[in-house]
């Protein structure tokens, strides 16, 4: 069974399309490299930037190793706390991706469930869900995230802020992004619900839950995959923005956004490398994700083939 599924996958139009799209392949390779770098950060890094005992203040603000005054131990230079930028970026990437993936999973889970229920049940339930979605959409995402962040900080005791930061970020970003999934899934659900195979299931006494889970859900997931991919890029950017604004990851556990904020403060004193290198990594990451998402959207759209 597995082999037949695998060979079916290899033979499918999507797989063929993938093998014939250099854009898809380049973005995938780039993303895999970035994911691997994040996953194996402790092995690849030359120091643990979170461990203050490994930092030597004398080495602060060193330029990249190839620039005059650079130190070969610090490939991309150091920041004002003497953290190795190369290692910080690896760890920061890791945090950014964790926040990104987790918030996408949260948003998709929430959005798919609510969209499926709204589209299938209809009536008041649907109305209630979609009004909440409308209200949420009328706020800028960043504002909602700031709000969630503010509330969380108000509730939690100050000494837990740093530890809870990552969860607060995931929650904040996840809660702002589910609307897109819900709307898309609701729309497709309403289309699928009317199809004859759903009527056939109803005639045969299959429960509403059974129809939603076994019949409709597998048929509405295609567009969700596209949204999820593009959303990963958005989530990473939102995280970076929040961290840049100083309400995201703390300076002791820098994400890519935090690193950019820190670098930004020293930019005009000639310390350009602290802001440039994390920014470049962020841009490459988001670009690769978006290109892959674009390709996926086109590949899944039968009209464009």
């Amino acid at each position: 069974m597995t082999t037949s599924t695998l060979s079916r996958l290899y033979d499918s139009d999507i797989a063929w399309n993938f093998r014939h799209s250099w854009m898809a392949r380049i973005s995938t390779v780039t993303l895999l490299l970035l994911f691997a770098a994040a996953l194996f950060a402790p092995l690849l890094a030359t120091q643990n930037p979170y461990d203050i005992s490994q930092l030597f203040l004398l080495d602060s603000e060193l330029p990249p190793s190839w620039v005059e005054g650079g130190d070969p131990r610090y490939l991309l230079g150091t920041d004002q706390q003497a953290r190795d930028l190369y290692s910080s970026i690896l760890y920061g990437l890791r945090l950014s991706l964790i926040v990104g993936f987790a918030s996408v999973v949260l948003a998709a889970g929430l959005g798919i469930s609510l969209g499926l229920i709204g589209g299938f049940v209809g009536g008041m339930v649907d109305g209630a869900i979609m009004r909440v979605a409308d209200i949420l959409l009328s706020f800028p995402a960043i504002l909602v995230a700031l709000l969630v962040n503010g509330v969380a900080r108000g509730i939690l005791p100050p000494d837990q802020h740093a530890d809870a930061a990552i969860w607060v970020m995931i929650l904040a970003i996840g809660l702002t992004n589910w609307v897109q999934y819900a709307r898309t899934v609701r729309g497709s659900t309403m289309v699928e619900r009317r199809k004859e195979y759903v009527q056939a299931a109803r005639i045969n006494g299959v429960s509403g839950m059974g129809i939603m889970m076994h019949h409709i859900l597998p048929n509405v997931l295609g567009p969700v995959l596209v949204i999820a991919t593009i959303n990963l890029g958005m989530a990473v950017l939102t995280e970076a923005t929040l961290s840049f604004l100083g309400v995201g990851m703390p300076a002791t556990q820098p994400s890519l956004g935090t690193l950019i904020r820190i670098g930004n403060e020293y930019l005009f004193s000639g310390v350009w490398w602290v802001v440039i290198f994390p920014s470049v990594v962020l841009v490459i990451l988001v670009l690769a994700v978006n290109l892959l998402g674009d390709w996926l959207r086109d590949a899944l759209n039968p009209k464009l083939r």
Binding site: K195, E196, Q199, A200, P218
Partner: peptide, 11 residues
Amino acid sequence: MIFQDPFASLN
């Protein structure tokens, strides 16, 4: 019941 559209009546 047997439906009209053989493309829509099978999941």
